[in-house]
Design a binder for these strands. Structure first.
Lengths: 120, 120
DNA sequence: CGCATAACTTACTTTTTTATCAGTACCTGA
DNA sequence: TCAGGTACTGATAAAAAAGTAAGTTATGCG
């Protein structure tokens, strides 16, 4: 759980309140979020079980919690079909889709950095 | 300290090895890094004490450790002047400067997201 | 009835990251 | 000689993030 009054939490809050960059990173910075977002950017929508299969190594707990956070931040839409067995589909919202150029530039820069520093 | 063989560490390693985005985020994702990088982007070079003053709330230990990581990742250059009292200046490397468009796009998107979600 | 299935929960532990706070070395000017 | 500035280091503790493993729910099918 989060302790809202710790220096830790307060520092994070202060940073995010003043800096768009810190704020944005807090939204996409979870361990598995980039991976999840990447999958969703490349396919219209995905079921929970598809995401689980596509992302090797992720636990159910992590998959759910990252999805819930993305949903709370209005980046991902969760659609439940009242069937048995259940079916739940995840898709990017418009706000989520607006991340594409940013995510692309992060990805490109990362690959560039990796290449450049590998030469040493 | 880091335990290189934990599932946690292995997961991170695997993600970063395959995904430029995860890799890039691991370089700029520290609590204070965006702040430090922002300052350095906006001024040619800064002394340790200037950074400390510019970034309210950061502890010396955090400032040093974040700078050291940035240095290890070849994003920041550390120049020591053998004077008394000591003078140490930090500046972005060329690789560091190459982050500007990426950081700008992260920042812009963050501000946009904040504005849009504040309307609810 | 009892099993299978999808999409989760819950309880708990481990690992990682941040914070706190007290040093250190060096010379200098008073 | 002694306080003061600069740029740190180290030990320890607190907080947060991530991982592990075992439930849960609802229902259609054999």
């Amino acid at each position: 759980m989060r302790k809202e009054t710790s220096s830790n939490a307060l520092n994070e809050k202060k940073i995010n309140a003043t800096c768009g960059m810190g704020y944005a990173l807090s939204l996409i910075g979870g361990r598995w979020k980039s991976n999840i977002l990447w999958r969703l950017l490349n396919s219209d929508k995905l079921r929970y079980s598809e995401l689980r299969r596509l992302i090797p190594g992720i636990s159910e707990r992590m998959l759910v919690s990252q999805l819930r956070e993305l949903e709370a931040d209005q980046l991902v839409l969760r659609v439940v079909y009242p069937e048995v067995p259940p079916r739940v589909e995840y898709a990017l919202t418009d706000l989520g889709k607006s991340m594409r150029p940013m995510l692309q530039s992060i990805s490109d820069w990362g690959e560039m950095h990796r290449k450049v520093t590998a030469e040493d």
